[in-house]
Design a protein around this nucleic acid. Structure first.
Lengths: 140, 140
DNA sequence: GTGGATGCAAACTCTTTGCACCTTG
DNA sequence: CAAGGTGCAAAGAGTTTGCATCCAC
């Protein structure tokens, strides 16, 4: 059972209210608005704990530090009878604002991309480009 | 113009003969077979130079350190009139042997995965699972 | 001979951990 | 009050850089 500290609240709130994947540094900056003394070690400790509790998920993009977003399931107690991963999705990395957005679509199995004999158990897709805001701003 | 040192030869040979993407540490281990005194800094310096010369390409997998593979173009002098990237491809990461293989297929544009207004300029796909060797070994 | 290349060590980023102190329940 | 959380500083992996030395040309 986890204790309900101000630090933990601040970390969780920052991630859940962001609406996108945040780096530990971004989480620190946001959460320090609530608890000024917050430390990066504490961020990392909560990030790890919250992942174990499946409250948040780690988002890994090729060539970038890890980011974290609120788990899709949210508060609903996932019955987990269909495998484990809450809701399979991918990410979009905007190189205008360096933000990462979740994409709620997936093209399905990629088994046919692999050579014969290879067994594909998972796939990750990362899109890069400009988000709606940045592409509108640039078109102006 | 780059000098033709034994170190440079050893680094390039290691990458070109590997047939798969190697980490700097793997390159070091292989290249030290030719030049025992080789240092990781030298590996990194050559990795960076060879990327600039488009002899090798960096392969980034989510959550893993960078790897490097021989550029597809190889020795052919790319005329580069169609944009730059030699041959667009993706990668397969085997979690049996931790090796990374190039996949020479691509499902094409992923624009439709992104929300309206988002401009997709690139995509990366990483497959994970067992390579042919590992899945055969495991089935035994 | 000279300038680029090399090896070593130090610096830097991201993340984890040891430890003394503080807080929650 | 005790179990656990927090902050700081130090330790690790991966990568880059400064500098004196070395070697290819």
């Amino acid at each position: 059972m986890e204790r309900n500290t101000r630090q933990r609240e601040a970390v969780l709130a920052a991630i859940e209210h962001a609406g996108r994947a945040l780096t530990p540094g971004e989480i620190l900056a946001l959460a320090q608005g609530k608890v000024a003394s917050l430390n990066l070690s504490t961020i990392y400790r909560h990030i790890n704990a919250l992942q174990d509790e499946a409250r948040i998920v780690k988002v890994l993009l090729p060539g970038h530090a890890a980011r974290f977003e609120a788990a899709c399931g949210g508060d609903e107690s996932e019955h987990d009878h269909h495998g484990g991963a809450a809701h399979h999705h991918h990410h979009f990395h905007c190189h205008g604002c360096d933000r990462v957005y979740a994409l709620h679509a997936c093209p399905g199995s990629m088994q046919d991309l692999a050579p014969a004999g290879f067994v594909v158990s998972a796939h990750e897709i990362t899109l890069r480009g400009l988000c709606a805001d940045c592409s509108a701003r640039r078109a102006t």
